[in-house]
Design a protein around this nucleic acid. Structure first.
Lengths: 339, 339
DNA sequence: CTGAAAGCGCTAACAT
DNA sequence: ATGTTAGCGCTTTCAG
């Protein structure tokens, strides 16, 4: 049988209350007693029962992680890395992460993740874009919610977000500084707010540099598979635009599609076309030459999110704090300086 | 406040014992009472507290899912799909899945997943190849264990496994039946038992067809990244072998690397080289033409695993049952019939 | 067929 | 500084 608090108490010759206090680092306990208790705890391999604790505290130490199935299965390990980050931090804070997927076509009345219905989570993380209907459905449960990499258009929620606009600027400015003027933006899922923000950053950078954008340099496309999307968009771009010298691909997966298109059309990177991505490069044979990109700290997004959520739970805060995680330019070899 | 069993009892004018019995579908309850109770349960949105239940049953309804970080982050969504399968089935059976990653270089003494230490899982799923040291470390906890897609070389554990040998045969036979004789096997991570089994199937099929295998047709390589591995292996293969007409790539990710190599060297699929993969194709622009492959039912592996594990937990079985999930040949366009 | 009550392991208020 | 105890929500035995 697994040891209980009683066993520890007996072994250490104290009451269970004392053991409990030691467990919670209460300073009213003499260091001598504390030492004795701690010793027994270790000796017996005692770990408090979560069920018992949860029962009295009506708090269970679980955090829900909700993501659309589609996002979770994405080939780029973007969200899986975010998930790992949440796991790491949750472990640190003695919590568990429960993952549930929802359909990206969630409709009102569809079944909700069980940890919401059963209130088996103290708070939930909503990761990536999710249907509005889903957000509506869970509102009434009044659980602490934190969004990651997405904020719903209406409603004021806390979130951990990427500095997309700054990333977009950074990427574009780097291209400009390398002497490029005909810079295309290839969009990916344009309906995603993050992409819009990146696009906005791109536009700001061009404006700042007094570059008048030609027509058709911004190509977007709502296909689901990012790579395919990138491929098709590149196709579209080059039909209309012969003099593009640089491309800003709004996600790394899109960039891979663009690369494929360029290869298929005998355009060399970076000699014919310079390319910059966004997210971070997969260490992948596909990427040749190594892609210059904007790096997003994915694991960190996860850890920050858990910290913030636990904080919201503990303090019962209601102000919708936003954390913007910093991005950074990673220079590799896919951009040619033509100054 | 969330409703408790008392609230339901009061509302339905019965005792809490009765509510509990209804909850467990006990037949001693009159259908009239049952109806009344059920009605209130629904009305109040009552869900039993897991903590309370766990406390009395000393069983928590959690299943641990352990995988190396490396496998979890793989670009092919193989194991994420398996995970989804476990999630689906766990939900069905009113359980939660707790995911934890371990290092693929786990050493004795390294920290174990918390749900093991805290006994916060009724059983655990070990997914993909994990270090022997890890298996040694968890043995003493005496928790029900089930392996997925891997069985440790020593020790007799239950497992849900792929019929790799048959898959290898199927793939090779299809190539043979299409008229190929010079069939190469490109291995990927050869140290993985699954790959060995596929290789074995390949050899059996050749034997059966009385094909004497030339030298250097089996290329393996222990690089980590499957695609890169595939690329390099193809390179190696074609240096030694000019007359190969077909390739069996032991995983789909490896196949993608092979495809890349073939493209880079102006070899057309299937006109110059026929190619078959294993796992299942990613709907991916990279794959052109659509890849003929052996399909592995990934989600099903997850559901089967949870069913078996819960069964082991419930019945306290000790016989190490193995479930071999069926594979199937999916014919697409990457193989040329040269008969 | 239904109810009363003990007890699962823990926390926290209160007592000493 | 430490112990006693009620009670968290549920299951289950035993009584009725």
């Amino acid at each position: 049988m697994r040891p209980t608090i009683k066993d520890v108490a007996k072994a250490a010759n104290v009451s269970i209350a004392t053991v409990s206090l030691v467990l919670h680092n209460n300073e009213r306990i003499s260091s001598e007693t504390k030492r004795r208790v701690l010793k027994r705890i270790k000796q017996l391999h005692y770990h408090p029962s979560r069920s018992a604790r949860g029962l009295v505290l009506s708090k269970i130490g679980n955090i829900g992680f909700i993501i659309t199935e589609e996002h979770f299965l994405r080939t780029e390990s973007f969200y899986t890395r975010v998930f790992l980050g949440t796991e790491f931090e949750a472990r640190e804070k003695d919590n568990y992460v429960l993952l549930a997927t929802i359909s990206s076509s969630f409709k009102k009345g569809d079944p909700l993740p069980r940890f919401i219905l059963e209130r088996n989570a103290d708070g939930i993380l909503i990761v990536g874009k999710v249907p509005e209907a889903f957000i509506e459905s869970i509102k009434k449960y009044n659980m602490p919610i934190l969004f990651i990499d997405y904020l719903p258009p209406n409603g004021d929620f806390p979130g951990v977000l990427i500095d997309n606009e700054r990333g977009g600027m950074l990427a574009t400015e780097y291209l400009i500084n390398s002497g490029h003027q005909n810079i295309a933006f290839i969009g990916g899922e344009i309906s995603h707010p993050s992409i819009m923000e990146r696009l906005h950053g791109y536009k700001l950078a061009l404006e700042k540099a007094n570059i008048i954008n030609g027509n058709g340099l911004v190509v977007t496309n709502d296909e689901n598979l990012s790579r395919q999307n990138g491929y098709r968009s590149a196709e579209k771009l080059f039909i209309q635009n012969k003099n593009v010298t640089a491309i800003f691909a709004s996600t790394n997966a899109t960039a891979v599609g663009v690369i494929q298109y360029l290869k298929d059309n005998n355009l060399n990177i970076p000699n014919d076309i310079s390319l910059i991505g966004f997210d971070d490069v997969e260490a992948d044979i596909m990427i040749d030459p190594p892609l210059t990109t904007i790096r997003v700290p994915k694991v960190k997004m996860g850890t920050e999110a858990v910290q913030l959520l636990l904080n919201i739970i503990k303090t019962e805060t209601t102000t919708a704090k936003k954390i913007i995680v910093p991005i950074e330019l990673v220079v590799r070899e896919s951009i040619k300086n033509i100054n």
